[in-house]
C-alpha cells in the first residue's frame, strides 16, 4: 500500500503545490523546480503512449485473428501503424515520406471528420427544434430569432431580429456560459485539492 498509495500521493502533493507556488510567486528555486516537473510530464506521457500503442496493437491483432476479411479496417490500421513507425524511426519526422503521410493522409481525413459537424448540427438542430415541451418551444423561437438575425435576409423578414440577436447572444448566452464556467472552475479547484491531498482514491486506482 505504501508504494501504491503513499508514494503517488506525496509526489502529487509536492508537484501540485509547486505549480501553485510557481504561478503566484517569483521564487527562483521554486520556479525552476516547477518548470522541471512540467518537463517530466512529457516523459511520463511518452511512457503512457507506449502503453497505448501496445493496446492498439492488441485490440486490432485480436480482431484480425478473429476474422481478417470482416475486420479489414484493422488490417489496414496495423499496416499503416507499422509503416508510419518504420518511416519515422528510419527516415525521421522531417523526411518526405513521413511528411507525405501527415499532409496527404492525416490532415485530409481529419478535415473530413471535422466537416461532418456541419451535417450533424443540422440533424441535431432538427430534433432539438421539435416543440414538444415549453422549453423546446422557447428554444425554437430563440433559435429562429438568432438565425434570422445572423443572415442578411433576416432583417428584411424580421426587422428587429439583429437587435434581439445581439441581446440574446451578449446577455442571455454570455450570462449562462459564465455561470457554467465559474461553477466549473470552482469544481476544478475542489477536485485538484482532493487529488493532491489524496482524498480522491480512485485517481490512484485504489479503494
Amino acid at each position: 500500500m505504501f508504494f501504491k498509495r503513499s508514494v503517488p500521493v506525496t509526489i502529487a502533493f509536492v508537484c501540485g503545490v509547486l505549480q501553485v507556488l510557481d504561478y503566484f510567486f517569483k521564487w527562483g528555486i521554486v520556479n525552476k523546480a516547477a518548470q522541471e516537473t512540467r518537463a517530466w510530464v512529457a516523459l511520463v506521457a511518452v511512457f503512457a503512449l507506449g502503453l497505448g500503442a501496445v493496446n492498439v496493437l492488441r485490440v486490432h491483432l485480436r480482431r484480425v485473428q478473429q476474422n481478417p476479411v470482416k475486420n479489414a479496417t484493422s488490417v489496414l490500421l496495423l499496416i499503416t501503424f507499422l509503416v508510419t513507425i518504420f518511416i519515422g524511426l528510419t527516415a525521421g519526422q522531417s523526411s518526405k515520406p513521413y511528411k507525405f503521410i501527415f499532409d496527404y493522409i492525416i490532415v485530409p481525413t481529419g478535415s473530413a471528420i471535422f466537416s461532418l459537424l456541419a451535417f450533424y448540427i443540422g440533424t441535431a438542430a432538427y430534433r432539438a427544434f421539435r416543440a414538444r415541451t415549453l422549453e423546446a418551444g422557447i428554444l425554437l423561437v430563440t433559435g429562429c430569432i438568432v438565425m434570422l438575425g445572423k443572415v442578411p435576409l433576416g432583417e428584411k423578414i424580421l426587422p428587429f431580429a439583429p437587435k434581439w440577436t445581439t441581446w440574446i447572444m451578449q446577455v442571455l448566452n454570455v450570462g449562462g456560459q459564465r455561470g457554467v464556467m465559474i461553477a466549473g472552475a470552482i469544481g476544478f479547484i475542489a477536485v485538484s485539492l482532493r487529488i493532491i491531498t489524496g482524498l480522491d482514491r480512485h485517481t490512484y486506482g485504489v479503494e
Binding site: L51, A53, N55, V56, R58, V59, R62, I106, T109, G110
Partner: peptide, 12 residues
Amino acid sequence: EDCRFISPDQWA
C-alpha cells in the same frame, strides 16, 4: 482489450 486507447489526435 475493451479499454481502448484510440488516438491523441482529436479527429482520429
